[in-house]
Design a protein around this nucleic acid. Structure first.
Length: 856
RNA sequence: GCCGGCUUGGCGGAAUGGUAGACGCGCUCGACUCAAAAUCGAGUUCCACAAGAGUGUGGGUUCGAGUCCCACAGCCGGUACCA
């Protein structure tokens, strides 16, 4: 490749400005109570989703969101806000541990080396973070508070009357037993079916299982004792309090679906004196129940199964247990076995056969259903396969819809005694009231959301601050004074296949005291990311996870408070964003934070695809490395290109030619003021001048239009259109003989949040010639305003249409009355041509825009 | 299957119900140059001009629809027997 001279010397001035910002702490922001803090300024908290510092380094996807937030941060600062714009590292994680297993090197070594790379790369892009607030979730000082919050959860239960977390000590005072309390803790131990990955040697959350499966890992069901967080207690609040947030509707919907609220009823059936409770969302169809299905794992299966069915039932149970999750869902073919038992339907006393089938899940509702094959597709399929009766109880309202397998709500009840003639929703209500009156059941809300499986069998995670007593078998919290509890130094991180995880090998560490041994599980990576946005507020505090006054300023203050802008990818829609909301609510219940929600406004950036419009991946060889782009075109070009590609929220393909286009644009901005002299040095050209007679030149008009447009577009986060306007403005300057300093500096000013290096460099060079320019950096000056008078046009071009088709254009005075415009339009030769021989029926005049002549 | 989102030139994308294709890429031509690169200027939806057609398809509302309404198709994402 031939040596190419850079179109402007970004390779020199970009690192220089970065060094200046670092040395002068240009973007440091003070906290309340610190000297120099300006309490008169409003706050604005702009947050990025912090990265996992992988060995691969920064990806072009990172700077997309990070540039967007950087533009907003710089813009808000120039508009007089105290802007909190921090960065940190989500640094616990499996890759570092797997690398440690391979090499024997401690995971912290790779982790902190990767952090150094990420920090260097982010600084190379000129982001205006307050680096004094940098945090890493792996830092002992951070781990301390993650564990502290965990203990808060551990010591809490959800008070269903107050609808908030309360200390379990209240229950102790009321005389609850240890066992009763353990059953309501927000952090609890339970034995249950979990996702276990034998090759990774750990369990996974439901939310994670699919992701790892798709990466080729084995995930199977196993019954294990695990730590759980009672997120289900907050299901209702997690749905209700989502509503007012300024989030994309699609993300809200994703969360709502994940939480999966449904309203129905529990109904008690009887079987030989035993009660079997089923959950249904369609109590209106109770008269159509023709059989019952229990999940194969249901507690009552063994009790009710008759002797002659025993063998078949046991065989079916065994077969189901052996099936992995994947195998179960792979085939949707219904299978099941008759138990030989019958249940009595409370509404009509009829006996219906009880089956077991794996299409009924253990974990949802009561693990038992009444089957209404006429109006539930799954029951219908099952009934057809096994020849079970099908009774119609709903008649669809639309005439030609068959009643068989009709599951809709637009129908009228039939064959249902006292419900006959009612609509489905009416019948539903009436039946619930009836069940409650008779004591046969009650209305019931259910959620798909399961409790959060919170323990992992890993080394590189926060250890649980918990010890086990060998005498009573109970778990106990270690005192806060012992936090942080760090992992022991080890050389062998390998999973042993022992479901207690690799820490069991640290025999000294485990032994807490004579009768107490440590919990060997560690927390999932999500723990650190659940509250990192709070630690940024007060990252060095060693008295509290955040000082209350500081928290109040940054998170309270404005209405509605919280993080004012949070930008990141969609991939966290139901993981991080749900977990963090849950933790935040617990902290809120204790008055430790000011708002019930952490993130007021959320924006999802769209994925950047490779040049081939495919997802970037190593195997496809279409990955773009930010380092290469910066070396070739400079940081400003990368930043601006990523903003110019298209709307922030859309998915869009990378085009290196597009970076060149942006680079050319920045070079044109440069050359408005700069020229190369004989020695090949860049010097001020003289085109930019302080001779200014105040005339409103076309360039000045363009500048003010640009200020208006860029201001509005930053507010709307429509960065691509802001950039195109600045291109138009620059083109106007390129075409002009001279440009006044004030016009040029205003362009630099609005361009500054996008291309901070170039604009500061040009500004500082201009100052060598124009001493009246303020001495501070552009980024420390006030955002420019436009003069509306400059935007007023004297004349307007009016479009003339005949029957909606463009036929002519005329120029009229901007304030020309309607009649005049209409007359001018009708006088047009082109119009006459197209209306010739026709009658003019109507003339529509839209002032300042168009005239449409309707003729036929 | 269900739930979302998207669909505009050769490409990325612009368009408060009012000139479709701003801006950029690419391409063509011109200037500069011995020449090229870079730069600057002109042009660039389709059709040879005019006429006409044109925002995934088909309908509708409107003086006027990329934009609003109805139906359908394709692509992308989420979810997956949640009773």
């Amino acid at each position: 490749m031939s040596e190419r001279k850079n179109p402007y010397p970004f390779d020199v001035f970009e690192p220089a400005w970065q060094a200046t910002w670092d040395a002068e702490k240009t973007f440091k922001v003070l906290n309340p109570g610190e000297e120099g803090f300006d309490a008169g300024k409003p706050k604005y908290y702009v947050l990025d989703m912090f990265p996992y510092p992988s060995g691969a380094g920064l990806h072009v996807g990172h700077p997309e969101g990070y540039t967007a937030t950087d533009i907003v941060s710089r813009y808000k600062r120039m508009n007089g806000y105290n802007v909190l714009h921090p960065m940190g590292w989500d640094s616990f994680g499996l890759p570092a541990e797997q690398y440690a297993i391979k090499t024997g090197q401690h995971p912290s070594i790779t982790t902190y080396a990767n952090i150094d790379t990420f920090r260097r790369q982010l600084k190379m892009l000129g982001f205006s973070y307050d680096w004094d607030r940098e945090i890493a979730t792996t830092d002992p000082a951070y781990v301390r508070w993650t564990q502290w919050i965990f203990l808060r959860l551990y010591h809490s239960y959800y008070n269903t009357e107050l609808k908030k977390a309360c200390p379990v000590s209240e229950l102790e005072a009321k005389g609850w037993t240890r066992e009763q309390i353990d059953n309501v803790r927000l952090a609890y131990v339970a034995e249950g079916m979990v996702n276990w990955s034998p090759d990774m040697g750990t369990v996974l959350a439901n939310e994670e299982a699919e992701e790892w499966k798709s990466k080729g890992h084995i995930v199977e069901r196993r019954k294990l004792r695990q730590w759980m967080l009672r997120i289900t207690a907050y299901a209702e609040r997690l749905i209700d309090e989502l509503e007012p947030l300024d989030w994309p509707e699609s993300i809200k919907l994703l969360q709502r679906n994940w939480i999966g609220k449904s309203m129905g009823a529990e109904v008690n059936f009887t079987c030989n004196g035993k009660t079997i409770t089923v959950y249904t969302t369609r109590p209106d169809t109770l008269f159509g129940a023709t059989y019952m299905v229990l999940s194969p794992e249901h507690d009552l299966v063994n009790e009710i199964t008759t002797a002659e069915q025993k063998e078949a039932v046991t065989a079916y149970q065994t077969a189901c247990a052996a099936k992995s999750d994947l195998e179960r869902t792979e085939s949707k073919d219904k299978t099941g076995v008759f138990t030989g038992a019958y249940a009595v339907n409370p509404v009509n006393g009829k006996e219906i056969p009880i089956w077991i089938a794996d299409y009924v899940l253990t974990g949802y509702g009561t693990g038992a259903i009444m089957a209404v094959p006429a109006h539930d597709s799954r029951d219908y399929e099952f009934a057809v396969k096994f020849g079970l009766p099908i009774i119609q109880v709903v008649q669809p309202d639309t005439a030609d819809t068959p009643w068989q397998d009709f599951c809709g709500y637009d129908g009228t009840m039939v064959n249902s005694e006292h419900l006959n003639g009612l609509s489905v929703p009416e019948a539903k209500q009436q039946m619930i009231a009836w069940l409650e009156e008779k004591g046969y059941g009650c209305g019931k809300v259910n959620y798909k959301l399961r409790d959060w499986l919170f323990s992992r069998q890993r080394y590189w995670g926060e250890p649980f601050p918990i010890v086990w007593n060998s005498e009573d078998g109970n778990h106990y919290a270690i005192p806060e004074s012992e936090l942080p509890l760090l992992q022991p130094e080890m050389e062998d991180f390998k999973p042993s296949g022992d479901p207690r995880g690799p820490l069991v090998k640290a025999t000294d560490w485990i032994q807490y005291s004579e009768n107490f041994t440590r919990e060997t599980n560690t927390m999932p990576q999500w723990a650190g990311s659940c509250w990192y946005y709070l630690r940024y507020l007060d990252p060095k505090n060693n008295q509290a996870f955040v000082d209350p006054e500081v928290e109040k300023y940054w998170m309270g203050g404005n209405n509605p408070g919280g993080v004012d802008l949070y930008v990141g990818g969609t991939e966290h829609a139901v993981l991080h964003l749900l977990y963090a909301r849950f933790w935040h609510k617990v902290l809120y219940d204790y008055g430790l934070v000011s708002t019930n929600e952490p993130f007021n406004k959320l924006v999802n950036q769209g994925l950047i695809l490779g040049e081939d419009s495919q997802k970037m991946s190593k195997s496809r060889g279409n990955v773009v490395n930010p380092d290469d782009i910066v070396r070739e075109y400079g940081a400003d070009s990368l930043r601006m290109y990523e903003m110019f590609m298209g709307p922030l929220k859309e998915v869009k393909p990378w085009q290196t030619k597009g970076v060149e286009g942006i680079s050319r644009f920045l070079a044109r901005v440069w050359r408005v003021a700069m020229v190369e002299n004989q020695e090949g040095e860049w010097v001020l050209s003289g085109k930019v001048t302080d001779v200014d007679n105040g005339e409103v030149t076309p360039v000045r008009k363009e500048v003010h239009k640009t200020i208006k447009k860029v201001t509005e577009d930053i507010e709307a986060m429509s960065f691509n259109t802001a950039i195109s306007k600045m291109m138009e403005c620059t083109n106007a300057m390129t075409g002009a003989a001279t440009v006044t300093v004030s016009d040029y500096v205003q362009l630099l000013h609005v361009l500054n949040p996008f291309a901070p290096h170039l604009t500061e460099e040009l500004y500082s060079r201009l100052r060598t010639q124009f001493a009246t320019l303020p001495a501070c950096q552009l980024c420390q000056q006030t955002w420019p305003t436009y003069n509306p008078e400059y935007l007023v046009e004297n004349t307007k071009e009016i479009v003339i249409q005949v029957n909606g088709k463009l036929r002519d254009k005329i120029t009229v005075a901007a304030d020309a009355p309607k009649e005049e415009v209409e007359a001018a339009a009708l006088a047009s030769d082109r119009v006459k041509e197209f209306t010739d021989g026709k009658t003019i029926r109507k003339v529509i005049v839209v002032p300042g825009r168009l005239v449409n002549i309707v003729a036929n």
